[in-house]
Design a binder for these strands. Sequence first.
DNA 1: TCGCTACATGAATCACCTT
DNA 2: AAAGGTGATTCATGTAGCG
Lengths: 365, 365
Amino acid sequence: MPILSPDRVNRILVGDCIAEMNALPAESVDLVFADPPYNLQLGGELLRPNHTRVDGVEEDWDKFHDFATYDRFTRDWLSAARRILKPTGSLWVIGSYHNIFRVGAALQDIGFWVLNDIVWRKTNPMPNFRGTRFTNAHETLIWCSRERDARYRFNYDAMKALNEELQMRSDWLLPICGGPERLRDDDGRKAHPTQKPEALLYRVIMSSSRPGDVVLDPFFGTGTTGAVAKRLGRKWIGIERDASYVATAEARIAATEEAPDPDLLDAPPKRQAPRIPFGWLVERGLLRPGTMLVDQRRRVAARVRADGTLIGENALGRHHGSIHQVGAALTGLPACNGWTFWHYEEAGQWKPIDLLRERVRSEMN
Amino acid sequence: MPILSPDRVNRILVGDCIAEMNALPAESVDLVFADPPYNLQLGGELLRPNHTRVDGVEEDWDKFHDFATYDRFTRDWLSAARRILKPTGSLWVIGSYHNIFRVGAALQDIGFWVLNDIVWRKTNPMPNFRGTRFTNAHETLIWCSRERDARYRFNYDAMKALNEELQMRSDWLLPICGGPERLRDDDGRKAHPTQKPEALLYRVIMSSSRPGDVVLDPFFGTGTTGAVAKRLGRKWIGIERDASYVATAEARIAATEEAPDPDLLDAPPKRQAPRIPFGWLVERGLLRPGTMLVDQRRRVAARVRADGTLIGENALGRHHGSIHQVGAALTGLPACNGWTFWHYEEAGQWKPIDLLRERVRSEMN
DNA sequence: TCGCTACATGAATCACCTT
DNA sequence: AAAGGTGATTCATGTAGCG
């Protein structure tokens, strides 16, 4: 797979996102985050009950003639994004009910495989001033891999740690972007009507990429994706055609502090931690041949052999094999994780042999 | 618009939902709630960490060959539903990321107008046992009117009351259906794999229909929609082709207690209250000509005239007209609700004239 | 500096009837 | 059919100003 040279990353490409993506090499990007126009189709002006005017999105870039036009635009940029994505890469899109169904259907049609839809619940949404509908208090993100059965990156443990050791759910509660984070012109007007909070991008980039990866945002706006990518030690590419947004983003990212130490940022999934054969524990003298192992409730037992296999017996007979095989055979279960199943005695206490594996792993670093 | 005769409501039609809907008169239904098959495309079996098998959805009715087949099915049932819906009616669909984007795009293409997408956040979702994705902790509902600019029903105040006097948001936190509510066979197996909680249907039916309305569910299953409709004093029609589900639903709804008193269920919007001209208050002697009215902070004042108009003045001159016009003119605001703006003195206290309107309204009953 | 009030504002598909 | 009148309608934050 092509590795983008240093002069092609950490910069904003000024122009149409489809043309710019088509000019990049195929399979060169690890993560795409896209915040496309929502096609809001707003009517006239809307007043708050106190008669002040709501400053809606009235920019030309959100105007589309009809659904067919919007769908064509969507298919085109999604296809361009898919080409530059590595086979292990993934794509995020954010939208509202105005556009997200069309985007979701289009990406499924193109061959992307939906992994999750994520709901960004806003702590402080704008109310429905006329009392005509439910308060529109959320936006939707779709996370998908390039195709079905693709191997993608998901930093499960990092997300779990971010969520007080509970699995991160598909609904995220975050405030809208305001206060000092919100970029404003000299005259105090918002620099971009739909600036996303950095906390949202933090979760996106943290969950599905690694330090050093290339993150691309085809609708860069004022560069939230670039700023967070820089903070998290990822490379980034922004595409934006509005010169004013580009200038704002450049200044913003220049002022953003770089990631301190890449090691602090990486969150290797346990699955990719170096595999330790059980035999190594015997080899290294952490367990002697003949040692008795038992399950947590001491219902079954087995002995360690010098070659790193176990041997044990129950009513059905003798069983010989790996820690996993013998655990499964003795309990009658279809499978068994021997590392957490078997316990050894140390200082009068029975502890899981996984503790010894951890000891070996830390010695290896 | 045709009114369905009593023998055509409060019953389950056994058969294909498209054929059955096509046999109903056009524009005869007030609300459609649909929980269509999800097109899950599950792979092999899924095991929990303790090796018990997860009981997924494997019924034949959930099998579709590909997206095109599913899309055709979706368009067909949505079109049939749209035909039988009154112009003021609305439709709800529930789905997950597997199908909801396709359903949403299809209904927009057909001409439905999305009013809200609602997120059902589950308090107790099934965890992601393999740690490969975010916990899929929600499902999505789409609420739409028959077409753009249609007048639809939304019981704003009822929803606000259900939410401690704050506007009801687009994210609803509700437990999944379990415990005694979950219908089970004699042998303890769940009667339907995707039974929805009654609390969910309660909000759907309560928010967007009135007592006496006809609620139709084309994928009736075990009849949650019918049970809640009966509890809320709505008429209902269920369509279901599986005889076993039909039997379960029949028994369930027969055992459901009917709505006690229709008056307790209705939640008429304030706009629908009978209109009371301000002049009636003067006619009835509740306010005498010449009475001084002031705003809440006593910044502006006006006098009542015998014909039910006001007269007042400020730096810009004298203003004469309706309570609304004079309130707006004196404050310089573009508009003003005179009923809540103006206050009269009673027993030494200044009270809004809306209180007098209430008094007239209650006398009229 | 602290506490209070007032004011501003955010991806918004935001009314309905009579003349 | 277009225009005008009535009257219904907001939550969480951040900031500015005042005493």
